[in-house]
């Protein structure tokens, strides 16, 4: 590492100015914000992992998020195993890699949690488990959580992060959209509160189902929130999509999001909404 052969006074500005930065900088030392392009020392990322300049929230595993979101939590349905209805070639390896990266059994963490003193059923989708795609058992975990919350009369908070349907599970992935939405609607019919936090990226079948059904819908700064993929749209309409077309701020402007929340303020905002956003009689 040439960095340490010289005086160790490198700054972010030096790294950016130096054409041979790649050789000089040990991997992992610098981060680049995918939203604003700022390059900065990784050491500036704290547990919230947000860009120091634009507040973009870097993608988190469900467990990283869990660590700062709740005072207490209890994981449910961790013995469910992903299904393989199409007997898709090499799918097992993908699942194994997802499990290893996230420490989860499926693309969503589900359980009971206390957020700022408020008890809630909680689901956190994990973008590092096969892109947070909606597999059959992802939908099963969500549905069981929602049904349990309805029975125990608990509110629900869902953090969405998903590339959409899980292609390797074909039509059975698609069916999860209706399955989860139906469970959400029973929960709502019971007079209970359903909160959604859209995180980067929330797309496809998840956007077109339970992510769009919140009584209140929050989104993290600059999170991608979309139905169709950028490339598909551009090939269809033969023009370039504006850079920010599928960012949370644009979606908010069109009326589909209630507020953008900074990660640092998420816990407080959720606790407040859990307390005052639903029925006040108990």
């Amino acid at each position: 590492m040439r960095l340490f052969e010289k005086r160790n006074t490198i700054s972010e500005r030096h790294v950016k100015a130096n054409k041979r930065a790649e050789d000089l900088v040990p991997s992992g030392l610098m981060q680049r914000c995918p939203n604003c392009g700022l390059e900065f020392f990784s050491s500036r990322l704290d547990k919230y992992k947000t860009c120091p300049d634009c507040d973009y929230g870097f993608r988190l595993t469900a467990k990283e998020r869990l660590a700062w979101l709740c005072e207490e939590s209890e994981e449910w349905f961790k013995d469910i195993q992903p299904s393989d209805p199409l007997h898709f070639p090499n799918y097992e390896a993908k699942v194994a890699a997802g499990k290893k990266k996230t420490g989860l059994n499926e693309a969503v963490w589900t359980g009971l949690a206390k957020i700022g003193g408020q008890e809630t059923a909680l689901a956190i989708m994990d973008p590092f488990f096969i892109m947070g795609s909606l597999g059959q058992m992802t939908g099963e975990k969500l549905t069981r959580l929602i049904e349990a919350a309805t029975e125990k009369r608990l509110p629900i908070v869902v953090f969405t992060a998903s590339g959409g349907a899980r292609m390797q599970e074909g039509i059975y992935s698609l069916m999860q959209m209706a399955k989860v939405v139906n469970a959400v609607n029973r929960h709502k019919a019971a007079g209970l509160l359903y909160l959604v936090v859209l995180t980067d990226p929330t797309t496809g079948g998840v956007t077109a189902s339970f992510a769009s059904e919140g009584d209140i819908t929050l989104a993290e700064a600059h999170a991608m929130v979309a139905f169709a993929g950028r490339r598909v749209i551009e090939q269809t309409i033969h023009e370039q999509l504006p850079k920010d077309a599928q960012r949370a701020e644009t979606v908010l402007k069109h009326g589909f999001i209630d507020r953008i929340v900074l990660r640092q303020e998420e816990k407080g905002t959720l606790a407040w909404l859990l307390k005052y956003g639903g029925m006040q009689d108990d």
Partner: peptide, 11 residues
């Protein structure tokens, strides 16, 4: 999958 469809909330 169009731009206006995204803006109008296809999902």
């Amino acid at each position: 999958p169009g731009k206006e469809a995204e803006y109008a909330g296809q999902g």
